[in-house]
Design a binder for these strands. Structure first.
Length: 547
RNA sequence: GGCCCGUUGGUCAAGCGGUUAAGACACGGCCCUUUCACGGCUGUAACAGCGGUUCGAUUCCGCUACGGGUCACCA
């Protein structure tokens, strides 16, 4: 059959040509070195932690160069579609400060290169597919799923390469009569690419992350349009990234094996090939082996981190350190600059896969939180608690000033305290400041007599004056120590420990236990001034009574 | 199994022919210190193996081993 006729017979509704599409989507008007990147997820609703890496790379590449990053929804597989997934994804990425300039949004598409949902681009794909048929570069295949399964089984039995190619490609060179008959019989067909590739020929290709990659030409006649007329990923990738003007394709390394086919497709369509960045997968250690972070692992979902209360800033910091190892060094030199000022460099990306390290994340998170202002901590914790810890939320919102004073302890200055790693730590941290969360402990150090402890507490409470400044306050504790036969100065105690029952440190400990219910706490003086004299007295006398 | 990618301490990683092989996390010790935390100092610990090329290989090449990815009308 004449190829033009075949094209018309296969896709009679398509009256447009590739030129029409090129006109519909003119070249972007951007500075010469501006990069156009994209994120193209399928809307399953699940946001994988690992996806924060390629999206961050795309985001940095685009925004660092004055370019554009857009969101395209790859909803070509209707079986995968989950209601509300797109909205959820947009919100999640937004939380981690990945904002799309263009593409699918909650309120619909924004931008001149849409539609940005592949399910709405059928006419566009078929226009190009039809042209390929006219040029003899694509042909219909009427095989059923069962036939294809059988073919694979035979290939396996014969130990031959699996796939639809050469002598196995039943419809590649089918006669006109056979095609007519199948069409007349209404048999559904998929459109396959006619590959002229030779596996013994090698292509050298430069990936911006992996470097020089040598691959064999593709020789499989892959499906480009499924029998429902919807494209496969490969075809959609070529058409969309051409029309949308993508300059840099950032994707997981699992796409590397299909690269030869993509190169072939771009060439057949007359498209210019974008630059590629195939980035390694995030792994986890399991039974001594590196394993891909799979959906079953709870750390795989970003929601896991949100629920535990990792601040979005901390996660961004961690992702940046994974992406560019010199980021940490830069951060140490520039503790207060936004990460967007870091000169992100593709060349610093590692070609090998790395392990997700929770210890490292925690360390980064602690440091990130320690750099925040008390106001910022208050706002973020409150927002988190509203969703994940209503009780904490009620305490924080009942007295905002108090909460901010608590978060101010040891904050600011060169050596901030690092008590909080995740928002999930906060409740325990603040519990001693709220009577209903406060837990009295009955564990006094055994090396001291209860009467000494009692005497120390009584003496302290008698001399306690909330108006004292910190040194006056501590001097009184020293006096108490001396009166009870404890060394008022640590140095004295250390040089002649046998002369004393203990030291001022021990006296402080008694007071700390009585006031905070813990052996360790932030600065006692500040704690007392926050909870107030009344509460200090009440807690100490309760402790005295219990002794 | 075929094809592709990868391999420096427990982890993340500098290095890009000549280094006492950085640094960070984790772990241990010491110091500072009213506790804790912070901070400072310090310690343990690595070029997967074997062959080449070279005056000289962690660095270049090959093989092996191990790890990962991929072989759909899924993305």
């Amino acid at each position: 059959m004449d190829l033009i006729k075949l094209a018309d017979r296969l896709y009679p509704d398509i009256t447009t040509f590739p030129e029409d599409m090129e006109k519909r989507y003119p070249k972007r008007n951007l500075p010469a070195d501006a990069k156009v990147t994209r994120f193209a997820p399928s809307p399953t609703g699940f946001v994988h932690f690992g996806s924060l890496l390629p999206t961050r790379v795309s985001e940095r590449l685009a925004h660092q160069s004055g370019g554009v990053m857009f969101l395209r929804i790859e909803d070509t597989d209707s079986k995968r579609y989950v209601e509300g997934a797109v909205e959820n994804m947009i919100k999640t990425y937004d939380y981690y400060n990945i904002k799309f300039d263009e593409g699918a949004t909650i309120d619909g598409d924004v931008g001149d290169y849409g539609p940005y949902r592949q399910s709405e681009r059928k006419e566009i794909y078929q226009t190009y597919a039809k042209q390929l048929i006219r040029e003899g570069k694509a042909y219909p295949c009427f095989c059923t799923a069962e036939e294809l399964d059988e073919m694979r089984a035979q290939q396996e039995a014969l130990d031959e390469d699996p796939g639809y190619y050469g002598k196995w490609a039943k419809w590649r060179d089918a006669s006109d009569e056979d095609i007519e008959a199948a069409l007349d019989g209404g048999i559904p067909f998929a459109l396959r690419f006619r590959s002229e590739g030779n596996p013994s020929r090698k292509i050298n290709f430069t990936d911006l992350v992996k470097g020089e990659v040598t691959v064999s030409e593709n020789f499989i006649d892959h499906v480009i349009l499924k029998s429902d007329g919807i494209p496969t990923y490969h075809f959609a990738h070529a058409v969309d990234d051409q029309l949308m003007g993508t300059t840099h394709v950032v994707r997981g390394e699992e796409w590397l094996p299909s690269l030869p086919f993509h190169i072939q497709l771009f060439k057949a369509l007359g498209f210019r090939l974008p630059k590629y960045l195939h980035i390694s997968q995030l792994m986890k250690l399991e039974d001594g082996n590196k394993k891909k972070l799979s959906k079953r692992d709870n750390e795989a979902a970003v929601s896991y981190f949100t629920e535990k209360g990792y601040s979005s800033e901390a996660v961004v910091e961690y992702i940046m350190t994974l992406l560019n190892s010199n980021y940490e060094e830069w951060r140490a030199a520039n503790p207060d600059k936004p990460y967007t000022e870091f000169p992100f460099n593709v060349k610093k990306m590692s070609p090998s896969g790395c392990l997700f390290d929770e210890d490292k994340l925690n360390d980064v998170s602690r440091n990130t939180v320690s750099r925040m202002t008390a106001d910022k901590v208050y706002n973020d914790v409150t927002e988190w608690a509203e969703h994940f810890d209503p009780e904490l939320y009620s305490y924080l919102t009942a007295d905002r000033e108090k909460a901010i004073r608590i978060f101010s302890i040891g904050r600011g200055g060169k050596k901030p305290r690092k008590d909080i790693t995740i928002w999930g730590d906060v409740k325990d941290y603040v519990s001693l400041f709220y009577d209903s969360l406060f837990k009295v402990i009955d564990q006094w150090p055994e090396e001291f007599s209860k009467s000494d402890i009692k005497a120390a507490l009584e003496s302290f409470i008698e001399s306690y004056n909330p108006a004292d400044d910190q040194s006056a306050w501590f001097d009184k504790i020293k006096v108490t120590a001396a009166e009870l036969g404890f060394a008022p100065e640590m140095k004295q105690y250390k040089s002649e420990p046998e002369k004393y029952k203990g030291s001022v440190a021990d006296i402080s400990m008694f007071i700390r236990i009585a006031v905070t219910g813990r052996i360790n706490s932030p600065d006692l003086y500040e704690i007392m001034s926050i909870i107030g004299a009344e509460r200090v007295k009440a807690r100490i006398s309760a402790a005295v009574d219990s002794l």
